[in-house]
Design a protein around this nucleic acid. Structure first.
Lengths: 124, 124
DNA sequence: CTTCATCGTTTACACGCGTAATCTTTGCCC
DNA sequence: GGGCAAAGATTACGCGTGTAAACGATGAAG
Protein backbone atom coordinates (compact mmCIF):
# COMPACT_ATOMS: atom_id res chain seq x y z
CA UNK A 1 0.00 0.00 0.00
CA UNK A 2 2.19 2.83 -1.17
CA UNK A 3 0.78 5.84 0.66
CA UNK A 4 3.08 8.43 -0.85
CA UNK A 5 1.53 11.83 -0.95
CA UNK A 6 1.05 13.47 -4.31
CA UNK A 7 1.82 17.15 -4.70
CA UNK A 8 -0.30 19.66 -6.58
CA UNK A 9 2.02 19.82 -9.55
CA UNK A 10 2.37 16.06 -9.66
CA UNK A 11 -1.37 15.65 -9.71
CA UNK A 12 -1.57 17.76 -12.85
CA UNK A 13 0.70 15.26 -14.56
CA UNK A 14 -1.25 12.34 -13.23
CA UNK A 15 -4.38 14.02 -14.52
CA UNK A 16 -3.27 13.71 -18.12
CA UNK A 17 -2.41 10.06 -17.65
CA UNK A 18 -5.82 9.43 -16.13
CA UNK A 19 -7.44 11.15 -19.02
CA UNK A 20 -5.41 9.84 -21.92
CA UNK A 21 -4.16 6.60 -20.48
CA UNK A 22 -0.58 5.38 -21.12
CA UNK A 23 1.53 7.96 -22.85
CA UNK A 24 5.10 8.91 -23.62
CA UNK A 25 6.82 11.75 -21.84
CA UNK A 26 6.49 13.81 -24.97
CA UNK A 27 2.74 13.33 -25.04
CA UNK A 28 2.43 14.20 -21.41
CA UNK A 29 4.47 17.32 -21.93
CA UNK A 30 2.21 18.34 -24.78
CA UNK A 31 -0.99 17.63 -22.94
CA UNK A 32 0.00 19.24 -19.70
CA UNK A 33 1.11 22.35 -21.54
CA UNK A 34 -2.52 23.31 -22.01
CA UNK A 35 -3.29 24.20 -18.42
CA UNK A 36 0.20 24.91 -17.11
CA UNK A 37 3.04 26.67 -18.86
CA UNK A 38 5.79 24.31 -17.86
CA UNK A 39 9.12 23.61 -19.46
CA UNK A 40 9.65 20.12 -20.75
CA UNK A 41 12.25 19.75 -18.05
CA UNK A 42 9.76 20.41 -15.35
CA UNK A 43 7.37 17.76 -16.56
CA UNK A 44 10.21 15.27 -16.77
CA UNK A 45 11.10 15.98 -13.19
CA UNK A 46 7.53 15.47 -12.09
CA UNK A 47 7.31 12.18 -13.96
CA UNK A 48 10.49 11.11 -12.24
CA UNK A 49 9.12 11.97 -8.83
CA UNK A 50 5.89 10.15 -9.57
CA UNK A 51 7.92 7.11 -10.54
CA UNK A 52 9.83 7.23 -7.30
CA UNK A 53 6.58 7.48 -5.43
CA UNK A 54 5.32 4.56 -7.46
CA UNK A 55 2.26 6.49 -8.54
CA UNK A 56 3.15 5.82 -12.16
CA UNK A 57 4.88 2.97 -13.93
CA UNK A 58 7.20 3.23 -16.93
CA UNK A 59 7.55 0.56 -19.55
CA UNK A 60 10.29 0.71 -22.12
CA UNK A 61 9.01 0.43 -25.66
CA UNK A 62 11.69 0.91 -28.26
CA UNK A 63 13.94 3.67 -27.02
CA UNK A 64 11.42 5.49 -24.95
CA UNK A 65 9.13 4.89 -22.03
CA UNK A 66 5.43 4.62 -21.88
CA UNK A 67 4.08 5.96 -18.61
CA UNK A 68 0.94 4.62 -17.00
CA UNK A 69 -0.76 5.65 -13.81
CA UNK A 70 -0.53 3.13 -11.01
CA UNK A 71 -2.50 5.14 -8.52
CA UNK A 72 -6.11 5.25 -9.54
CA UNK A 73 -7.92 8.52 -9.77
CA UNK A 74 -10.68 7.36 -7.47
CA UNK A 75 -8.12 6.30 -4.92
CA UNK A 76 -6.47 9.68 -5.07
CA UNK A 77 -9.80 11.47 -4.80
CA UNK A 78 -10.57 9.48 -1.69
CA UNK A 79 -7.26 10.21 -0.06
CA UNK A 80 -7.42 13.92 -0.67
CA UNK A 81 -11.05 14.31 0.21
CA UNK A 82 -10.92 12.26 3.34
CA UNK A 83 -7.89 14.08 4.55
CA UNK A 84 -9.70 17.39 4.23
CA UNK A 85 -12.85 16.08 5.82
CA UNK A 86 -10.86 14.70 8.71
CA UNK A 87 -8.97 17.91 9.26
CA UNK A 88 -11.92 20.24 8.97
CA UNK A 89 -15.18 18.45 9.49
CA UNK A 90 -14.62 15.58 11.86
CA UNK A 91 -14.36 13.18 8.99
CA UNK A 92 -17.96 13.48 7.93
CA UNK A 93 -19.54 14.73 4.75
CA UNK A 94 -22.72 16.36 6.02
CA UNK A 95 -21.00 19.16 7.94
CA UNK A 96 -19.17 20.23 4.82
CA UNK A 97 -22.39 20.38 2.87
CA UNK A 98 -23.96 22.28 5.74
CA UNK A 99 -21.15 24.78 5.59
CA UNK A 100 -21.73 25.39 1.91
CA UNK A 101 -25.42 25.61 2.49
CA UNK A 102 -24.95 28.28 5.17
CA UNK A 103 -22.92 30.28 2.75
CA UNK A 104 -25.30 29.88 -0.18
CA UNK A 105 -22.69 28.04 -2.15
CA UNK A 106 -24.98 25.28 -3.31
CA UNK A 107 -26.17 25.73 -6.84
CA UNK A 108 -29.61 24.64 -7.98
CA UNK A 109 -27.88 21.85 -9.78
CA UNK A 110 -26.06 20.77 -6.64
CA UNK A 111 -29.30 20.63 -4.74
CA UNK A 112 -31.01 18.66 -7.47
CA UNK A 113 -28.18 16.16 -7.61
CA UNK A 114 -27.96 15.83 -3.87
CA UNK A 115 -31.65 15.13 -3.70
CA UNK A 116 -31.24 12.42 -6.28
CA UNK A 117 -28.38 10.90 -4.40
CA UNK A 118 -30.11 10.53 -1.11
CA UNK A 119 -33.19 9.24 -2.84
CA UNK A 120 -31.15 6.48 -4.39
CA UNK A 121 -29.57 5.70 -1.08
CA UNK A 122 -32.92 5.27 0.54
CA UNK A 123 -34.29 3.11 -2.22
CA UNK A 124 -31.69 0.49 -1.57
CA UNK B 1 -8.14 40.97 1.68
CA UNK B 2 -5.15 39.15 3.11
CA UNK B 3 -5.21 35.86 1.26
CA UNK B 4 -2.22 34.32 2.98
CA UNK B 5 -2.40 30.59 3.10
CA UNK B 6 -2.43 28.92 6.49
CA UNK B 7 -0.35 25.83 7.06
CA UNK B 8 -1.46 22.73 8.89
CA UNK B 9 0.54 23.49 12.01
CA UNK B 10 -0.57 27.09 12.00
CA UNK B 11 -4.18 26.05 11.81
CA UNK B 12 -3.79 24.06 15.00
CA UNK B 13 -2.76 27.25 16.76
CA UNK B 14 -5.58 29.21 15.23
CA UNK B 15 -7.91 26.47 16.39
CA UNK B 16 -7.24 27.22 20.03
CA UNK B 17 -7.79 30.94 19.48
CA UNK B 18 -11.07 30.19 17.77
CA UNK B 19 -12.10 28.01 20.62
CA UNK B 20 -10.92 30.06 23.57
CA UNK B 21 -10.89 33.50 22.10
CA UNK B 22 -8.09 36.00 22.87
CA UNK B 23 -5.27 34.44 24.83
CA UNK B 24 -1.68 34.92 25.83
CA UNK B 25 1.10 32.91 24.24
CA UNK B 26 1.37 30.93 27.42
CA UNK B 27 -2.27 29.96 27.27
CA UNK B 28 -2.00 28.99 23.65
CA UNK B 29 1.03 26.89 24.41
CA UNK B 30 -0.86 25.13 27.16
CA UNK B 31 -3.98 24.53 25.11
CA UNK B 32 -2.23 23.37 22.00
CA UNK B 33 -0.16 20.94 24.00
CA UNK B 34 -3.18 18.68 24.30
CA UNK B 35 -3.31 17.50 20.72
CA UNK B 36 0.25 18.16 19.63
CA UNK B 37 3.40 17.65 21.61
CA UNK B 38 5.13 20.88 20.69
CA UNK B 39 7.83 22.81 22.47
CA UNK B 40 6.92 26.27 23.64
CA UNK B 41 9.38 27.57 21.12
CA UNK B 42 7.50 25.95 18.28
CA UNK B 43 4.22 27.51 19.25
CA UNK B 44 5.87 30.92 19.51
CA UNK B 45 7.21 30.52 16.02
CA UNK B 46 3.80 29.62 14.70
CA UNK B 47 2.23 32.60 16.43
CA UNK B 48 4.87 34.77 14.85
CA UNK B 49 4.16 33.41 11.40
CA UNK B 50 0.44 33.89 11.89
CA UNK B 51 1.11 37.49 12.87
CA UNK B 52 3.14 38.06 9.75
CA UNK B 53 0.34 36.56 7.71
CA UNK B 54 -2.07 38.83 9.55
CA UNK B 55 -4.22 35.90 10.54
CA UNK B 56 -3.88 36.89 14.17
CA UNK B 57 -3.47 40.18 15.92
CA UNK B 58 -1.42 40.87 19.05
CA UNK B 59 -2.26 43.51 21.57
CA UNK B 60 0.18 44.45 24.26
CA UNK B 61 -1.28 44.26 27.73
CA UNK B 62 1.21 44.86 30.47
CA UNK B 63 4.36 43.10 29.49
CA UNK B 64 2.82 40.46 27.34
CA UNK B 65 0.68 40.12 24.27
CA UNK B 66 -2.86 38.99 23.92
CA UNK B 67 -3.39 37.20 20.65
CA UNK B 68 -6.69 37.22 18.82
CA UNK B 69 -7.66 35.59 15.59
CA UNK B 70 -8.24 37.98 12.72
CA UNK B 71 -9.12 35.34 10.22
CA UNK B 72 -12.48 33.83 11.03
CA UNK B 73 -12.94 30.13 11.28
CA UNK B 74 -15.76 30.14 8.78
CA UNK B 75 -13.65 32.10 6.35
CA UNK B 76 -10.85 29.61 6.71
CA UNK B 77 -13.21 26.67 6.27
CA UNK B 78 -14.47 28.24 3.08
CA UNK B 79 -11.06 28.82 1.67
CA UNK B 80 -9.81 25.36 2.36
CA UNK B 81 -12.95 23.62 1.24
CA UNK B 82 -13.40 25.60 -1.91
CA UNK B 83 -9.82 25.10 -2.88
CA UNK B 84 -10.27 21.34 -2.61
CA UNK B 85 -13.55 21.36 -4.46
CA UNK B 86 -12.02 23.44 -7.21
CA UNK B 87 -9.02 21.21 -7.56
CA UNK B 88 -10.86 17.93 -7.46
CA UNK B 89 -14.52 18.33 -8.24
CA UNK B 90 -14.93 21.23 -10.62
CA UNK B 91 -15.83 23.51 -7.76
CA UNK B 92 -19.09 21.84 -6.94
CA UNK B 93 -20.31 20.02 -3.88
CA UNK B 94 -22.51 17.33 -5.35
CA UNK B 95 -19.72 15.43 -7.12
CA UNK B 96 -17.87 15.10 -3.85
CA UNK B 97 -20.89 13.69 -2.13
CA UNK B 98 -21.40 11.37 -5.08
CA UNK B 99 -17.86 10.16 -4.69
CA UNK B 100 -18.42 9.31 -1.07
CA UNK B 101 -21.69 7.70 -1.90
CA UNK B 102 -20.06 5.43 -4.48
CA UNK B 103 -17.58 4.36 -1.91
CA UNK B 104 -20.13 3.76 0.83
CA UNK B 105 -18.56 6.43 2.96
CA UNK B 106 -21.80 8.10 3.93
CA UNK B 107 -22.97 7.16 7.38
CA UNK B 108 -26.63 6.83 8.26
CA UNK B 109 -26.22 10.05 10.11
CA UNK B 110 -24.76 11.80 7.10
CA UNK B 111 -27.66 10.69 4.98
CA UNK B 112 -30.17 11.82 7.55
CA UNK B 113 -28.55 15.21 7.86
CA UNK B 114 -28.21 15.66 4.13
CA UNK B 115 -31.85 14.88 3.71
CA UNK B 116 -32.70 17.49 6.25
CA UNK B 117 -30.53 20.04 4.57
CA UNK B 118 -32.05 19.74 1.16
CA UNK B 119 -35.48 19.74 2.66
CA UNK B 120 -34.78 23.05 4.32
CA UNK B 121 -33.40 24.44 1.11
CA UNK B 122 -36.54 23.54 -0.74
CA UNK B 123 -38.83 24.95 1.89
CA UNK B 124 -37.40 28.37 1.38
C1' DC C 1 32.17 4.41 -37.31
C1' DT C 2 31.29 9.12 -36.06
C1' DT C 3 28.09 12.67 -35.04
C1' DC C 4 23.98 14.50 -33.62
C1' DA C 5 19.59 14.70 -31.71
C1' DT C 6 16.70 12.86 -28.38
C1' DC C 7 15.37 10.86 -23.98
C1' DG C 8 15.91 10.14 -19.45
C1' DT C 9 18.81 11.23 -15.15
C1' DT C 10 21.23 14.35 -12.05
C1' DT C 11 21.92 18.41 -10.05
C1' DA C 12 20.26 23.05 -8.66
C1' DC C 13 18.10 26.43 -6.06
C1' DA C 14 14.81 29.32 -3.59
C1' DC C 15 10.93 29.00 -0.66
C1' DG C 16 7.60 27.38 2.81
C1' DC C 17 7.00 24.30 6.55
C1' DG C 18 7.79 21.65 10.83
C1' DT C 19 10.42 21.86 14.55
C1' DA C 20 13.24 24.01 17.76
C1' DA C 21 17.39 26.37 20.23
C1' DT C 22 19.37 30.66 21.21
C1' DC C 23 19.51 35.58 21.76
C1' DT C 24 17.65 39.87 23.46
C1' DT C 25 14.98 42.77 25.89
C1' DT C 26 12.55 44.22 29.85
C1' DG C 27 9.93 44.27 33.95
C1' DC C 28 10.44 42.68 38.82
C1' DC C 29 12.63 41.61 43.17
C1' DC C 30 16.13 42.45 46.51
C1' DG D 1 20.30 49.94 40.45
C1' DG D 2 21.86 45.08 39.31
C1' DG D 3 20.74 40.48 38.37
C1' DC D 4 17.32 37.25 37.09
C1' DA D 5 13.33 35.22 34.93
C1' DA D 6 10.07 35.46 31.46
C1' DA D 7 8.42 36.79 26.89
C1' DG D 8 9.12 37.74 22.40
C1' DA D 9 12.48 37.90 18.25
C1' DT D 10 16.08 35.89 15.60
C1' DT D 11 18.39 32.22 13.68
C1' DA D 12 18.64 27.34 12.33
C1' DC D 13 18.15 23.34 9.64
C1' DG D 14 16.43 19.39 6.99
C1' DC D 15 12.77 18.21 3.86
C1' DG D 16 9.37 18.56 0.10
C1' DT D 17 7.98 21.34 -3.70
C1' DG D 18 7.97 24.17 -7.88
C1' DT D 19 10.71 25.16 -11.32
C1' DA D 20 14.32 24.24 -14.44
C1' DA D 21 19.18 23.74 -16.55
C1' DA D 22 22.98 20.62 -17.37
C1' DC D 23 24.59 16.11 -18.16
C1' DG D 24 24.88 11.49 -20.02
C1' DA D 25 23.53 7.66 -22.73
C1' DT D 26 21.99 5.74 -26.93
C1' DG D 27 19.82 5.02 -31.23
C1' DA D 28 19.59 6.95 -35.95
C1' DA D 29 21.51 9.02 -39.95
C1' DG D 30 25.14 9.77 -42.93
Amino acid sequence: MSAESISEAESAVLAVLWEKGPATAEEVVAAVAKPRAWQESTVKTLLGRLLKKRAVRAEKVGRRFIYSPTLKREEWLSRESESLLDRLYGGRVAPLVAHFSRHRKLSKRDVRELKHLIQELEDE
